[in-house]
């Protein structure tokens, strides 16, 4: 019996060029959009929009960021606090740390308030009130940048 040769036994190499092209494009994309900034954001907060909300020209020096969710919970330093008294004691501890370990005055520290668009204005005022009691004076009310005018339709 005649045995036929099994055909071409050469090494079959796939063309890797398109895959490498694509991978490099993906790397280039992620390198362009990567952001190493330590901006404190929380996905639970839907900020109110404003056409005048602009990023600060210079970064704040060691700001305190307080988040307020739509259901009235406070988020401070990664902890969810369910009442204002807990927030007060957390801020009190923070002020003691600032006063002991830095030469900064509390009036120079910026308190960033990231309140949800549907949270109660009264709670924002309570946060401001507590901060004022603790001698903070500078506040930054954070909003989402908007291209369209937000005051035309209420």
């Amino acid at each position: 019996m005649r045995i036929r040769p099994k055909g071409n036994t050469g090494i079959v190499e796939g063309d890797l060029t398109p895959m490498i092209d694509m991978t490099f494009q993906l790397i280039a994309f992620f390198m362009m959009v990567i952001n190493f900034s330590d901006a404190e954001q929380d996905q639970r907060i839907k900020l109110p929009a404003s056409e005048l909300a602009r990023p600060p020209t210079a970064p704040y020096e060691q700001p305190l960021t307080i988040h307020l969710t739509s259901n009235g919970h406070f988020i401070y330093a990664g902890d969810e606090l369910f009442d204002i008294a807990r927030l007060r004691s957390a801020l009190l501890r923070e002020t003691q740390i600032i006063l002991r370990h830095t030469s900064k005055k509390l009036a120079e520290v910026t308190v960033i308030i990231r309140a949800d668009a549907n949270s109660k204005t009264g709670l924002v005022q309570e946060i401001i009130g507590i901060c004022q009691e603790l001698k903070f004076e500078k506040f930054a009310l954070r909003g989402k940048q908007s291209e369209a005018s937000t005051i035309r339709g209420a």
Binding site: T23, L26, I27, F30, I34, Q41, I128, E137, R142, K144
Partner: peptide
């Protein structure tokens, strides 16, 4: 290249444009 890709995918964070109203309230 795949290691780089995985690194960038995992560190990718969508940062929404935000801005502030600075008020001084003693």
């Amino acid at each position: 290249v795949f290691q780089l890709l995985v690194f960038f995918v995992f560190t990718f964070k969508i940062v929404l444009p935000e801005g502030d109203f600075n008020i001084r309230m003693p």
